[in-house]
Nucleic acid binder design. Structure first.
Lengths: 329, 329
DNA sequence: CTGAAAGCGCTTACAG
DNA sequence: CTGAAAGCGCTTACAG
């Protein structure tokens, strides 16, 4: 069955399409009697305005285009969920595309969004400012996620350095002085920032502490291997910070397998706060991806309403202390 | 900067908009020289067609509207991810809305999609067929998820009964005869189906087995409580099936706390295969929400292309045997 | 192979 | 308060 259009309603109510439009949109300059006739016709025909036609006419879609590398895992689902919450709270919708870390795909996705969105939220982590300029249409505002440099556009990021620094402060407060850091992949921005933030804060708060950094790959086994190597080398470590929870959990298990007590002999901390961390009592940094998504949407809607928007927001993760470290005194 | 339109391109290339349109859309009836001039103008102006205008003109958006109750948790994120994979493989986009189990919100979301989507995928689990008829526009096809009755529309569901039956068969094959089922909330469709499927298959394969069913609420603590009650009552159970993984994990922990061996004394199985289940070695049913989403999208695109579509697909979960039950002989 | 024109379903000055 | 008309940016018969 064909959807009724505004003309069908106008005919049914014996008025012009202009009057139907005014009634639908709640304009005040409509005679009450006319309004009633129109509303009756709307009900009778089950009329629902065509949003695409309205967008075209008003050059406004009340839709936000979202382009992310992937949709895999809690990280992205929380991000999208936060965006959805903030968007629907302000009457916006979400048009979703994945780009698989491929700028060509991103270009395609953004082209397909032209005319259907009022603004964009794009996570193109590795993109350079010039690439972003080529990618993003100059005609609509865009907010970036986890980009090093947005080339003047608002950027929202998780503050990895501040997060890692919080772990360093926690270790320092516990009096730990022989510390192992299991790094994430060297090629990974977050991994580098976590290491840097941890190292700098530790140096600042506990200059006498000894820090050993070993490579890792974010997998559980890397955490286990780091502990085995440590034990073999005879290095007397009293605290371990792994760049993510999976490696921290691997380290924790391996310590216990070797009859070391956590947190009695060695305290362990991770990063991300995956569900397993809560279940197994791992101290970690909780990353609020939903808040990041929500804030990005709010920034974009402010831009769309011409109310400006922050330049760069770094969302600091929360330290969640659990049984794998002691509570500070 | 204003986006260039097809008229700008036509002027720049000194042709009519019709020729620009034909070139853009790869029609064959364009003189090569004209085509080149047009393409040059497109490049020069950075022209990108307005997708909303095209949709309106062609009455085709190549977009699928997705309405789900929520975006929380792995369940939904996997569903959306599966949809995205299938959609982008066939050149479709996803317009996303959440309805929070509220039919009025769903109506609103669907109204906002009118004219912007070619079809709908809706998860309105509790909706009756008449409510669905009132909710869904007759003008475009819709595919339903996890609905008991789609009122003639295609419905895609997880086959909870078959999944639970697989656990029953597993227990029967292991020779278990004194069995406890920890149910999910009575009000929950899935929970009821899981119980029913388990009970029927057990009766069929092991008529002599004794089955005790106790209530639960999908929380870890309900699993623990069920085990405590069982131990207090002196009931000699040799197998436990919990309606979801969290309760199964609670039960497993509580058994071990009480010096019972899993799977030696009691085998335990859950449902869902959450990440924790893998980490802690819980036997469970793996639910492929991504496949469900992908199949729903494929069904809908087939409908859109007039190629019909299945009426009702029940996706059977996979039995994943881990250390919490023995391997069958 | 090409262009002028109508049409997709809306909104909004403009004139009355 | 109301309607005829132009316009949003496209596509597509139609005529040439």
């Amino acid at each position: 069955m064909r959807q009724a259009t505004i003309r069908d309603v106008a005919r049914e109510a014996n008025v012009s399409v202009a009057s139907v439009s005014r009634t639908i949109n709640g304009h005040s300059n409509v005679n009450p009697a006319t309004r009633e006739r129109v509303l009756a016709a709307v009900r009778a025909l089950g009329y629902v305005p065509n949003a695409a036609a309205r967008s075209l006419s008003m050059a406004l879609s009340h839709t936000i285009g979202v382009v992310v590398p992937d949709l895999h895992g809690e990280f992205f689902s929380e991000l999208i969920r936060g965006m959805d919450t903030a968007a629907s709270a302000t009457g916006y919708h979400l048009l979703l595309s994945t780009m698989h870390a491929d700028l060509e795909e991103a270009r395609h996705a953004i082209a397909a969004m032209n005319g259907r969105v009022d603004g964009l939220i794009v996570m193109a982590t590795q993109a350079q400012p010039e690439e972003l300029d080529a990618l993003l249409p100059a005609s609509i505002p865009a907010v970036l996620l986890n980009c090093a440099d947005g080339g003047g556009r608002p950027v929202f990021t998780i503050d990895d350095r501040a997060g890692a620094a919080a772990i360093a402060a926690h270790f320092a407060a516990l009096g730990k002085r022989n510390i192992l850091h299991i790094m994430g992949p060297e090629s990974n921005n977050d991994a580098r920032d976590r290491r840097k933030g941890f190292e700098e804060e530790l140096k600042r708060l506990a200059p006498s502490a000894k820090l050993t950094v070993v490579p890792g790959n974010y997998q559980e086994e890397a955490g286990r291997a780091a502990v085995r190597d440590m034990l073999n080398s005879g290095n007397k470590v009293d605290a371990i910070f792994a760049a993510n929870d999976m490696m921290a959990l691997g380290a924790m298990q391996e310590l216990r397998t070797n009859a070391l007590d956590v947190p009695g002999d060695v305290v362990v901390a991770g990063f991300d706060d995956i569900p397993l961390a809560g279940f197994l009592g791992l101290t970690t940094m909780r990353v609020h991806m939903d808040q990041l998504g929500a804030q990005a949407v709010e920034c974009l809607t402010r831009l769309l309403e011409g109310k400006g928007g922050e330049e760069r927001v770094r969302l600091v993760p929360d330290l969640v202390i659990r049984a794998s470290t002691e509570k500070p005194q």
